[in-house]
Write a protein that binds this DNA or RNA. Structure first.
Lengths: 136, 136
DNA sequence: GGTAAACCTGTGTGTTGCTCACAGGTCAAT
DNA sequence: ATTGACCTGTGAGCAACACACAGGTTTACC
């Protein structure tokens, strides 16, 4: 299969396939014209990569997992350790997003009926400057 | 003020100040030794930038706002338009994070008492491959 | 005055996970 | 042979900083 075919089969962009190839996750064979040809094993591997990504593993995580599994070791202990870390980070970012969302909503509703003003020497936009989120 | 002083005053890293300077948000004067010196107006400006960032505006948004305000126009209409867009995106990313978080938790609890296995020809890590998130 | 350590500086590069631009190659139909 | 549609690989670009590094500056002490 060529790059577009494998990309279409797994419903990702050809550029993504090229990216995973570039960083060594996929190792296609090269034909006479320089085109890269992917084999069924590459499809399996790519499917694994996408599953891992959708579970929140980073590309570096996957690199570690692939390396571990290539060493005749079961990568599962690695996977367990990594997902614990990633989950913690995700919880934190989720919380941060939650707070950002609240701040944005609050600002919008506060600005709803506030008139606009021209900037002065000390103020650029009173809507932003008047919002006290930073101080709290 | 030199870079570290202004950074400490606003509780950000000196590298961030350098970054904002590099992209033209701050325009310090240069002394004989090549050091950059910031004036009170820069503090005001930087404080504005940080407020905007904390409200979810991107650096590009801020660029647009600063440009608008430099044109004797009130940037507030721009600000209103931008925050509406950013809020929409934030809601979407919040939702995405929510779902990722659920998938991760589900995977963790499913894997809780699952034994590890050595990888075979068709499987790299059964924990990830067995997780059906992609199909749903 | 000298000097050594601590601190600070600007510039260049790295980061994540792709996406885009581009010049050119390939293939089917004419 | 040639047009046109489609495909290819490589290199660069993105956000928003953080980090590495070689060197300049200031301070403490003699």
């Amino acid at each position: 299969m060529r790059v577009k075919q494998i990309a279409d089969a797994l419903e990702i962009s050809a550029d993504s396939v090229r990216y995973y190839t570039r960083i060594g996750f996929l190792v296609p064979s090269k034909s006479h014209n320089g085109y890269k040809y992917y084999r069924p094993a590459d499809v399996t591997r790519l499917r694994f990569i996408l599953s891992a990504r959708s579970l929140g593993f980073s590309v570096n995580d996957i690199k570690e997992i692939l390396f571990t599994s290539s060493q005749t070791n079961a990568p599962c202990p690695t996977v367990r350790r990594l997902i614990e870390q990633r989950l913690k980070e995700t919880e934190q970012r989720y919380q941060d997003m939650h707070e950002l969302r609240l701040r944005m909503r609050k600002a919008m509703s506060e600005w709803e009926n506030t008139p606009d003003q021209h900037p002065t020497a000390d103020t650029i936009c009173h809507l932003i400057e008047g919002f006290t989120a930073l101080k709290s």
